[in-house]
């Protein structure tokens, strides 16, 4: 008798749970779909700021960058993706100075580990969100990051604009963390971003 009642109760609870399952999927059928239609929504596309798509070297309005050609990024790159070539020039006051010749980055070999950006002492490079990097030949993947005719930003004189420009570049938050040498003012401006960056 027990097994008989078990059989029937099993049967009916089984049917009940099947119907419940079907009601769940029925609701799912009518939920609004959240899939983003990529090429059509280029205008409204939202990409996370921390997304690392492409290494860039920001230049300001005077076509000046912050790269001192120290080569730390090149040394830290695990894949040998970055090749920094520099040249020694003589300044007006007779000092010898190392300036950047080319900062070459190979997209095809990059693993986007962010080590170069973290270790850069002068925040000269960063990753930005432009992810549409597909090209037809491999040689095009090797990119020169410093613009034609650009030069190093003079340190003392350009301190203020750099600091103001920085908060716009939110990606810099972890960089500030790793680099305590930066002036206090800069840290103060960047600080509010930090907890958010860590949470993410």
């Amino acid at each position: 008798m027990d097994s008989v009642s078990k059989y029937f109760s099993g049967l009916f609870t089984g049917i009940g749970s099947l119907l419940k399952g079907m009601s769940v999927t029925w609701k799912e059928l009518w939920t609004p779909k959240v899939t983003r239609q990529y090429p059509e929504n280029r205008e409204t596309l939202v990409v996370s700021d921390r997304f690392r798509a492409e290494l860039v070297m920001p230049h300001d309005a005077n076509n000046e960058h912050a790269c001192t050609a120290c080569g730390i990024c090149q040394m830290n790159c695990p894949n040998g993706t970055i090749v920094v070539t520099s040249q020694i020039i003589e300044t007006e006051d007779g000092k010898k100075k190392k300036i950047l010749d080319t900062h070459q980055w190979d997209l095809g070999m990059c693993t986007f580990c962010n080590l170069c950006v973290i270790t850069c002492p002068s925040d000269a490079i960063k990753f930005d969100n432009n992810f549409e990097n597909a090209v037809f030949t491999r040689s095009k993947l090797i990119q020169k990051l410093n613009a034609e005719g650009s030069k190093l930003r003079e340190k003392k004189k350009e301190e203020k604009p750099t600091a103001e420009a920085k908060p716009v570049i939110e990606v810099k938050a972890p960089v500030a963390d790793a680099k305590p040498v930066v002036e206090k003012e800069v840290i103060a401006k960047v600080k509010p971003e930090e907890p958010k960056a860590e949470k993410e």
Partner: peptide, 10 residues
């Protein structure tokens, strides 16, 4: 696709 909250082929 609609059951899985997608759009399917489009």
């Amino acid at each position: 696709a609609f059951f899985q909250a997608r759009y399917g082929p489009n």
